[in-house]
């Protein structure tokens, strides 16, 4: 039950151990900054993440509890970074261990999908001309 749930400005760890002697499957998801070309030709250089940290942490704990009620999770980790995240670098890490692989995949998928929909975290695109724009999921193409 020792879930690892963090919001931090430090780079995410290379590896998070959620192994357990009762877990036959471990699923890990990393969400990373993807290079983009703006329609006007500018290149994306980084994403700047901001969190309402107290609320985000509470929501991530609630997500962990909800996932535990849906799947037989042995251990889990949900880590989100804030601050500037360069191209190719991870901003979010989710790791889940369960007795069998299908549950690990499902739980991991549900956790990242629900986190993206609800958790109080925002990202701003940083372009190579120094311009920035908040990502708005309600807008097409975002």
């Amino acid at each position: 039950m020792n879930d690892r749930i963090e919001v931090s400005s430090e780079p995410l760890p290379e590896h998070v151990d959620v192994s357990a002697t009762t877990a036959g499957g471990v699923a890990v998801f990393l969400g990373c900054t993807r290079g983009e070309t703006h329609p006007d030709g500018r290149q994306l250089v980084a994403l700047d993440y901001e969190a309402y940290e107290e609320m985000a942490l509470k929501q991530m704990h609630d997500l962990a509890a909800a996932a535990r009620s849906k799947w037989p999770i042995e251990r889990l980790a949900i880590l989100h970074r804030v601050g500037r995240v360069g191209l190719g670098d991870p901003s979010v890490l989710i790791a889940v261990s369960t007795p069998h692989r299908s549950e690990a995949f499902e739980a991991c998928r549900w956790l990242i999908d629900t986190l993206k929909k609800d958790v109080a975290i925002w990202k701003k695109e940083v372009w190579d001309d120094g311009g920035t724009s908040w990502v708005d999921p309600g807008e097409p193409g975002s």
């Binding site: 969190a51 309402y52 979010v92 986190l115 109080a120 925002w122």
Partner: peptide, 9 residues
């Protein structure tokens, strides 16, 4: 708090 459309992940 006002929570504009979130975009974490």
């Amino acid at each position: 708090a006002v929570i504009p459309p979130v975009s974490g992940g």
